[in-house]
Design a protein around this nucleic acid. Structure first.
Lengths: 188, 188
DNA sequence: TTTATTTCTTAAGATACCTTAATCATTACT
DNA sequence: AGTAATGATTAAGGTATCTTAAGAAATAAA
């Protein structure tokens, strides 16, 4: 696991082994079983979660009581509710494991301390945040332009994993359509 | 103008006057008239743009030839096409002034140099990027949950400025509906 | 293997939003 | 002031997607 972390952290910024050790010592591993909650809506999110293996979803319950999935995340992705994390407000989303999932937890205060002791880490997190922003903008652009049929095809093409590992009704939720309509689309 | 910059940069991180001077010396002021392009689709975006005063929009042309506005930005906001800026790929959007707009331009290479000479600046930009991510996520959530009638009401409530300063058909584009349908909504 | 639970499909009727095209209102130009 | 250009409204008919409700299929539990 430490090798995976080392490779991941060295991807954009080079850290010494001593720095990696220091960072690693602040990461708390935790194993989540399928359906376990990593973060519950309404709680304040004081951590960022690094997925070592497995699959999770972020979702909230809309005013009609339906689950709306905003994100899937797999190995080597970070998940958190950034707004709650930054502003210490109650989280508007829940994060839940869809498979048995190994996670490394970094506490907000520990991360702040690490930013001061290892400024390069701040650089890494700036870059990660930029990449997230790009990803989320790209998703929006695609959704803006495409009808749902094409959004589904796009997802199948770029993330075939998700299609296989996630039930159809969750895919529908992520695509912002009803499961019934997705079923309809798949026929044609 | 320098006072405005100083206040802005000191909002999240405290800089010395010498540091502010160094940063300020790398910012190139430029005045854009209404309808001038700050960035053209297809060009590589090598700068971030800080709006001192005025109003701009980001937009692209969809496959039917319609303009789709993805963002408005006013004084004290940064605009850029992050994907193009980071990956040096052709920009998928254009940025255009909707009013006479004063801009400070920071070149990518200069910014990288400043990050090394003033590490605190990296911190500021990490925070700015996080705030942008939060804003874009919030917009998405609102758009996911709300029908267009409510999205319009929400915009009127939170950004009354835009409604007054921007023609209705651009508001419609931003809300992802046709001008005709927005007109319909406004009646009721 | 049987039963229970979860997931997927089908179909009919409803609604949000779009398309087109014409008219009206406003602002800018000469 | 008069004409052109731009922006806003109205209305009719069409399409994408949702709602509800029921039944089929697959997976998990007993």
């Amino acid at each position: 696991m430490k090798d995976q972390i080392k490779a991941y952290f060295n991807r954009y910024v080079k850290f010494s082994d001593a720095e990696i050790d220091e960072i690693f010592s602040k990461l708390t591993p935790k194993l989540f079983q399928k359906k376990d909650y990593i973060l519950q809506e309404g709680k304040i999110c004081n951590s960022k979660y690094f997925i070592v293996s497995g699959l999770v979803r972020s979702f909230y319950i809309d005013n009609k009581g339906n689950e709306k999935i905003t994100q899937f995340a797999i190995e080597n992705w970070w998940v958190t509710n950034l707004e709650s994390f930054i502003k210490k407000t109650p989280s508007t989303i829940s994060i839940q494991a869809l498979e048995k999932t190994e996670i490394l937890i970094i506490d907000k205060k520990e991360l702040e301390r690490l930013f001061f002791s290892i400024p390069k880490l701040e650089r890494l997190f700036r870059i990660i945040t930029e990449n997230m922003l790009i990803a989320i903008q790209r998703k929006n652009d695609i959704y803006l332009q495409m009808k749902s049929k094409n959004r589904y095809n796009d997802l199948v093409k770029h993330f075939p994993d998700f299609i296989q590992r996630v039930p159809q009704y969750m895919i529908a939720s992520y695509l912002e359509i009803t499961p019934e309509y997705l079923s309809e689309l798949r026929k044609s």
